[in-house]
Nucleic acid binder design. Structure first.
Length: 465
RNA sequence: UGCCUGGUAGCUCAGUGGUAGAGCAGGUGACUGUUAAUCACUUGGUCGUAGGUUCGAUCCCUACCCGGGCAGCCA
C-alpha cells in the first residue's frame, strides 16, 4: 500500500478504509483500552492522531513507541470522536521500526534554541525547526519562481574564486599546499604557483562580478548559492557560510534596481503567507506575536525611499543622541538604520545614494553632486528588526570612472582585466543587488538568530554538524 | 576583535560563605476519548575546568574553556 503523508491525511475530504502512514512518534497517551499516538512525518506542523486498540495483536508494540520512535501504521482514516482534530487513524497494523529510548533529547515541552543548536542533527524533528525548514524550502522555490517568471536566467557562479579584494570581507583560503611546510619563493613567501590552481584562491564572498559577465550577455540573470565570509563576527545576523540571491540586470538603473528589490521582498513574503500559513501561524504564536501583523503591514504598504543625505538630516535633526555620531560621509550604524526603519518610517525603507568613499569600487558615480559630496548609486533595503536585508547598486559602466574607483580602493587593473573588458566591449548600464537568504527567512519567520534559520550554522568556532 | 552576560539534575531554572532545591523528562502505580493529559510516589548532581582567599567555597578573587547578547564588518 502506498504511503500517505500526514499532511495529505489531515487535508482529506472523505474517510478511507485503508491508509498507510510512516513517521515518528511525538507523544503517546495510554488509556486502559487503547493508546493515542501523535504521528508526525515532517510534512506538516500538525501531527495525525493514531488510535491503537488494546485488543489489536500488534498492541504490545505500543509500549516501545515512545517519543521519537519511528513507526508505521496501517488502518482506517475516520472522523475523530474527540475534540482537537478532524481526522484520526484507527490502527489495524502497528509496527515500531526504530525505538527511541529515554536518552532521546527532544521532549514534548519547549527547549531553548541554544540547546537545540547543540543537537542540530535532531532539531529538525522539533515543531519550530520543522516549520523553519519547510518555510526555507518554500522560499527557495519562490526565489526561482519570481525570477523565472520574469525571464531571468539562473547562473551558477563559482564557489572557488581568485578575486580576492571585492571589499566584501575577509575570505577563506582554498589551498592544497601542505600547511606545515608549503613551497616558498626565493623571497620566502608561500609559492602559490605550485598550488592546485597555480594561484591564490578563496571561497567566494559574492557572485556579483561573475554575474555581471552573464548579465552583459543574457541581459537578466540571478545567482542563488552559498557564499563565505571569514569575518570573526559574533552576532545574531552573521554567519560564515550563508546563501545569497544576486540578480544582475542589464540596461537598468538604480531606480529599476530598487523597484525590483522591493517587489522581490514582497513577493517572498506573500508566497510564504500563502503557502506556509500553518507554519507562520505557529511562529506568530510562539516566536513573535507581532509577526503576521508586521508581514501584512509590509505587504500592504509601499516601501519608503530616502536618500542617504536625507537620512543624515533626519538623524541629526530629531534631537536624539547617538552612540555613534552622525555626520555626512560616515556609514550609517546599526542604531541609525534601525531608527529609520523601526521608529521614523515604521516600515521597510530603501536608503540610496551613499557617499562614494564608503562604498565599493564598482558602484556608479552619480552626476551633479555638490563638491565634496560625491555619491554613488548604491542602495540598502532596511527592514524592522533586522536592519540591512539587501544591498545593491547600479554598476559603473564607464571605463574611466571604473578605473578611478579601482585606484581609490587600491585595486590592480591587471587583476580585474576581465571585469574591465565588460566595459571595453559593448558596455551597458546595469544594476543588481544581493539578498541574504537567511536574513529574509529571519524576517519572514520572526526567528531572531541566523543560526536558527540555516540547517547547519557555520559561525566562528562552530562547525560540529 | 572589543564590551557585557551566563555555565547548578537529561531539559528549563531557583538558591546560599557551613558540601543543594523546584517544575518538566525518566521509573512505578492509579485514572482517563486523551491531545504540552491528570494524580500519587520515586530515581537522578565531583554546582564548567584549574588555581587562590578562607577553619570551610557552588557562592568571593584570578586564569582558562564553552554558550549567549551588543558593537564593528556586512547579507
Amino acid at each position: 500500500m502506498p504511503r500517505t503523508l500526514v499532511r495529505d491525511a489531515l487535508n482529506a475530504t472523505a474517510p478511507s478504509d485503508a491508509i498507510f502512514l510512516q513517521g515518528w512518534v511525538r507523544t503517546r497517551r495510554d488509556a486502559k483500552a487503547f493508546s493515542f499516538i501523535e504521528l508526525n512525518d515532517g510534512s506538516s506542523l500538525k501531527g495525525l492522531q493514531v488510535i491503537v486498540d488494546a485488543t489489536l495483536p500488534d498492541y504490545p508494540q505500543v509500549g516501545r513507541a515512545s517519543t521519537g520512535a519511528s513507526v508505521e501504521v496501517q488502518g482506517r482514516l475516520v472522523a475523530s470522536k474527540g475534540q482537537g482534530q478532524q481526522w484520526e487513524v484507527v490502527a489495524e497494523k502497528f509496527t515500531v521500526l526504530g525505538e527511541a529510548d529515554a536518552t532521546y533529547p527532544l521532549q514534548k515541552k519547549g527547549h531553548s534554541l541554544e540547546f537545540l543548536r547543540e543537537i542540530a542533527h535532531l532539531r529538525p524533528r522539533s515543531n519550530l525547526f520543522g516549520a523553519v525548514f519547510r518555510v526555507r524550502s518554500r522560499l527557495a522555490y519562490a526565489v526561482h519562481q519570481f525570477f523565472q517568471e520574469k525571464q531571468f536566467f539562473y547562473v551558477h557562479t563559482p564557489i572557488i574564486t581568485a578575486s580576492d579584494a571585492e571589499g566584501a570581507g575577509e575570505m577563506f583560503r582554498v589551498t592544497t599546499l601542505p600547511l606545515g611546510n608549503p613551497p616558498k619563493t626565493e623571497q620566502g613567501e608561500v609559492d602559490h604557483t605550485q598550488d592546485f590552481f597555480g594561484r591564490k584562491t578563496f571561497l567566494t564572498v559574492s557572485g556579483q562580478l561573475e554575474g555581471e559577465i552573464f548579465a552583459t550577455a543574457l541581459s537578466n540573470i540571478y545567482t542563488f548559492g552559498p557564499t563565505f565570509r571569514a569575518e570573526n563576527s559574533h552576532t545574531s545576523r552573521h554567519a560564515a557560510e550563508f546563501w545569497m540571491i544576486e540578480p544582475e540586470i542589464a540596461f537598468c538603473d538604480l531606480a529599476g534596481d530598487m523597484a525590483l528589490a522591493e517587489e522581490f521582498v514582497k513577493y517572498l513574503i506573500r508566497d510564504a503567507r500563502e503557502h506556509c500559513a500553518a507554519d507562520l501561524e505557529f511562529f506568530s504564536k510562539f516566536v513573535d506575536k507581532e509577526l503576521l501583523t508586521r508581514l501584512d503591514f509590509v505587504l500592504e504598504r509601499p516601501f519608503q525611499r530616502c536618500s542617504y543625505t536625507d537620512a543624515i538630516a533626519i538623524l541629526t535633526q530629531n534631537g536624539k543622541t547617538w552612540e555613534h555620531p552622525v555626520a555626512w560621509g560616515d556609514n550609517l550604524q546599526s542604531e541609525h538604520e534601525r531608527y529609520l526603519t523601526e521608529e521614523h518610517f515604521k516600515c521597510p525603507v530603501t536608503v540610496y545614494n551613499y557617499p562614494r568613499a564608503i562604498k565599493a569600487f564598482y558602484m556608479r558615480v552619480n552626476e551633479g553632486d555638490a563638491p565634496g559630496r560625491q555619491t554613488v548609486a548604491a542602495m540598502d533595503l532596511l527592514v524592522p528588526g533586522i536592519g540591512e536585508i539587501i544591498g545593491g547598486s547600479q554598476r559603473e559602466e564607464r571605463m574611466e570612472l571604473l578605473k578611478e574607483g579601482m585606484a581609490l580602493h587600491h585595486l590592480s587593473e591587471k587583476d580585474y582585466w576581465w571585469y574591465l573588458d565588460l566595459r571595453r566591449y559593448g558596455t551597458v548600464p546595469h544594476a543588481g543587488f544581493g539578498l541574504g537568504f537567511e536574513r529574509m527567512l529571519m524576517f519572514v519567520t520572526g526567528v531572531a538568530n541566523i543560526r536558527d534559520v540555516i540547517p547547519f550554522a557555520r559561525t566562528p568556532g562552530t562547525a560540529e554538524f
